[in-house]
Amino acid sequence: MTPLRLRPDNFTPPTRTPWGGRRIVEAIKAGLPDLGDDGEHDVVGEAWEFSIDPAFPSRVADGRLLAEALPEAATTPMLVKLLDTADELSVQVHPPDDYAALPPGHSGKPEAWYVLAREPGAGLWLGLRDGVTREALSSALAAHADLRPMLTFVPVSPGDCFVIAPGTVHAVGAGVTLVEPQLVRPGQTGTTYRFWDWNRRYDAAGHRSPSGQPRPLHVADSLAVTAFDDQRGAAYVASLRRRPEPIVAAAGATRDRLCTLGVMSVERLRGDGTLVIPALAALAALVVVRGRLTIRAGDASTAARCGETLALPSEIGAFSVTLEDAEAIMTWCRG
């Protein structure tokens, strides 16, 4: 079997991501077909690059759902997104899979963040500061207070990687572009609970407006699933940070493991050269975030450029990846 090229325009609407920016369409996916006119996508906060989520499933070029074109995808827990922020995301937390109040058809959503780009001084909000109790946080939320003094801000650089476990209070700050692999129960939708949305209001089109409406919050559920007994401050941030682990290096190219997320391996292929990947015996997603590459398996070859995503069937066997000043994020799940 050969890799399947996924449509590059699986964007969520701006009413869902009013904090979105322009880097996904103007930089990462610039010039790709099937994106429509440049002005068509005023704000793009998310591109669901590899997804079987019922809300925003991936499709192949002929319009079929990924799970129809490649049946083994129907049982994968992998979800891989691109995120780009012009404004802060809401302060949020994800529940564990066994949270009793999860609605039917919903699951937890452990995730990882790999930073691609950032504006000067931009960063992430990760965890609570020392001394912040459940009672103090609850009181601040009830008073619609500014939560920033209770949160830990972490400036970031391209290449930084963090694992966000269930129960971690977090938000992506303004001016950050990242890859976000997630684990979601197959066929279900991952759940996010919003603590606080910076006291913002939006009109019906998703634009900031003093006369608009706030987005819904989920304070009771947020407090219920937050891991208040975790470490705090810098020590907690250090526990979330992951350093690349070399897997193999060839002339000019490297394959590194960025992190593991449950059964998922999140890897980076980078450089200018050819890597040989032994058979994974698992479905994989390959998101190209810089340059161009060519996959060769047997007598077949498939090229992809920045902004494109390929689904690699488990039956593809061993393959090579020739990188042309490229970087790609590959995710796959151990059996």
Score class of each variant (00 low, 15 high):
residue 58 S to L: 09
residue 329 I to C: 01
residue 327 E to W: 04
residue 183 L to G: 05
residue 326 A to L: 10
residue 267 E to G: 06
residue 256 D to E: 09
residue 103 P to A: 05
residue 321 V to C: 01
residue 147 L to A: 03
residue 57 P to R: 11
residue 121 G to K: 07
residue 124 L to K: 02
residue 107 S to E: 07
residue 184 V to N: 01
residue 283 L to H: 08
residue 280 L to W: 10
residue 22 R to M: 12
residue 297 A to M: 03
residue 78 M to E: 05
residue 56 F to E: 06
residue 19 W to V: 03
residue 326 A to W: 13
residue 244 P to V: 03
residue 67 A to G: 12
residue 309 T to A: 14
residue 313 P to T: 00
residue 140 A to Y: 13
residue 305 R to M: 15
residue 59 R to D: 02
residue 10 N to K: 14
residue 241 R to E: 13
residue 129 R to D: 08
residue 90 S to G: 12
residue 164 I to Y: 01
residue 135 E to F: 13
residue 64 R to Q: 11
residue 182 Q to H: 15
residue 76 T to M: 00
residue 246 P to A: 05
residue 43 V to P: 13
residue 54 P to E: 06
residue 280 L to R: 10
residue 225 V to K: 04
residue 229 D to A: 08
residue 14 P to K: 00
residue 162 F to T: 00
residue 29 K to S: 07
residue 286 L to A: 03
residue 152 T to M: 06
residue 255 R to Y: 12
residue 203 D to E: 13
residue 109 K to I: 02
residue 10 N to L: 14
residue 130 D to Y: 13
residue 44 V to Q: 01
residue 45 G to D: 09
residue 177 T to Q: 13
residue 80 V to Q: 14
residue 224 A to N: 06
residue 298 G to S: 08
residue 206 G to S: 04
residue 188 Q to H: 11
residue 64 R to G: 01
residue 86 A to F: 15
residue 126 L to D: 00
residue 128 L to Q: 11
residue 123 G to L: 04
residue 38 D to P: 02
residue 113 W to P: 00
residue 23 R to C: 02
residue 102 L to G: 13
residue 164 I to C: 06
